[in-house]
Amino acid sequence: MNEMQKQPEQQPVTYWTLFKSTFLISAFTVGGGFVLIPLMKAKFVDEYHWINDKEALDLVAIAQSAPGAVAINAAIIMGYRMGKVKGLLTTLLGTVLPPLITLTIVSQFYTAFAANQYVQMVLKGMQCGVAAVILDVVLDLVLKQCRKKLLLPILIMFGSFVASYIFDINIMYIILVDAFIGLAFMQKPVYN
């Protein structure tokens, strides 16, 4: 865990950047959970270089293992990592405020909102943008896993994908099985 090299272009962490980035990601992301996480990864890892890939994936794994909404959990744990309890409250607020504000307004007149064709057009366009960001993050992560040339992680990756996407198996079972495989076979440093 001590291999977090400071990269030259690393942006300084301030509560304002933390709040701003989580707020905007949350505001523009429809779909929650695993849609929001790759966007956070794109921002915190690839753009700001605050943490590396490996630590980000560890944190998401922890977020996924705890009860509650994955998006909220991921925001909480990233915030804790960047700025302890104050950082955590910052990212939590940033993530929760956009749906809180939107839903308070929308709950008053949601039928008009749902039927509005211009709202639909913006949402449809954003869906393509979100898909592009996620695909970019996913390709990068998948290639990195493959480049390690280790059989077990690649098997876990493809197996979990098939289980989740093709067979719709509950994420909790997938996490449990993979945690067990890791515990049993992947304690050697080569897998770190």
């Binding site: 293992s65 993050v137 996913v138 992560l141 890791g182 515990l183």
Partner: peptide, 16 residues
């Protein structure tokens, strides 16, 4: 965690 990291990649890919 070593077992879960590739799984998280898969779950993100699945949503993607």
């Amino acid at each position: 965690l070593n077992g879960l990291r590739p799984a998280v990649v898969a779950l993100i890919a699945s949503a993607g």
